[in-house]
Design a protein around this nucleic acid. Structure first.
Length: 261
DNA sequence: AATATATTCAACCGCTGGCAC
DNA sequence: CGTGCCAGCGGTTGAATATAT
């Protein structure tokens, strides 16, 4: 299926948006919504392709976008989420209300990646580097002779859940069914798990956030009322924490976890 | 002050998956 | 089931800006 560039039609404008164009787009979406991006520019009277309009709206004009610098906490969250999700910027953005995937991607490439790379000289973050590298082909240089402790991670069965992030998250929830991520011999290594199922990471993340948010902000349960295998939200956070504590501990990530928590 | 270099970030490009027909 | 369309995603680019020389 070969398709030409979406903006190849003559007369369609490219490049930076003018305030006038922004206003037209905002006004139109406020009035009619954005049900059909392809038809939108024509109907709104914009000389742009639908893709460009969508991008402008989602990355810049959306009213719920938070402008300004990232806070220390946001940066730490990104690092942590990136460690778990890899370059899945939209998934990361879904957990940072008000931030866009594009923005997060930029921040990662301009600030955070460098920070990680620099810090990878330290033992704590070397583990992150190794794990990162193996789990999704991260670009952090290999440290000679260092096999990821993550290879020894062992997971049990996780049951289904629905996770849509927070209410303010973009509407791409995952309601996929669960996955069992144990290998034949019961051992999970990132070598035999080239691509973890989405739902698995959603579960990991949901649980992780609960621990984090719960300890910091105290609204455990509001964001997650699902079930997590043998771990449910009815159980004390400590048990959940213990579960992940053990997993990280087995993988030699204990020191990192302590730091995060 | 002028120039070179580095950094930032908005926007584009191309690919992919979901859906309708 | 195959095909085409569309929205969304991640990688990349390049102009604008900041900083160094």
């Amino acid at each position: 299926m070969v398709r030409g560039p979406c903006c190849e039609k003559m007369g369609l404008k490219k490049g930076p948006w003018t305030p006038e164009e922004d206003q037209i787009l905002i006004n139109y979406i406020n009035l009619y919504g954005h049900g059909n991006w392809r038809a939108l520019p024509k109907q709104a009277g914009l000389l742009r392709c639908g893709k460009s309009c969508r991008l402008r709206w989602t990355n810049y004009l959306r009213p719920d976008i938070k402008r300004g610098n990232f806070t220390q906490q946001e940066e730490e969250t990104i690092i942590k989420l990136h460690q778990m999700l890899g370059n899945r910027w939209s998934a990361i953005a879904a957990r940072l209300p008000g931030r866009t995937d594009n923005e997060i991607k930029n921040v990662w490439h301009t600030h955070l990646k460098k920070r990680i790379t620099q810090n990878s000289a330290t033992p704590q973050l070397r583990n992150y580097s190794a794990m990162n590298r193996q789990s999704y082909g991260g670009d952090i240089p290999a440290v000679a002779g260092e096999e990821s402790a993550a290879q020894s991670y062992k997971f049990t069965t996780f049951h289904s859940m629905q996770s849509c992030g927070s209410a303010s998250s973009p509407p791409h929830c995952s309601s996929e069914s669960s996955s069992v991520v144990t290998a034949d011999n019961g051992e999970l290594s990132t070598n035999n798990l080239p691509e973890a199922d989405d739902s698995f990471w959603m579960e990991v993340l949901a649980n992780d956030q609960i621990a984090m948010v719960g300890s910091q902000q105290g609204f455990v349960g509001e964001i997650y009322q699902g079930q997590f295998g043998n771990l449910t939200m009815e159980q004390p956070i400590n048990e959940t924490m213990d579960f992940w504590y053990n997993i990280f501990a087995r993988g030699g990530e204990l020191s990192e976890l302590k730091e995060i928590l």
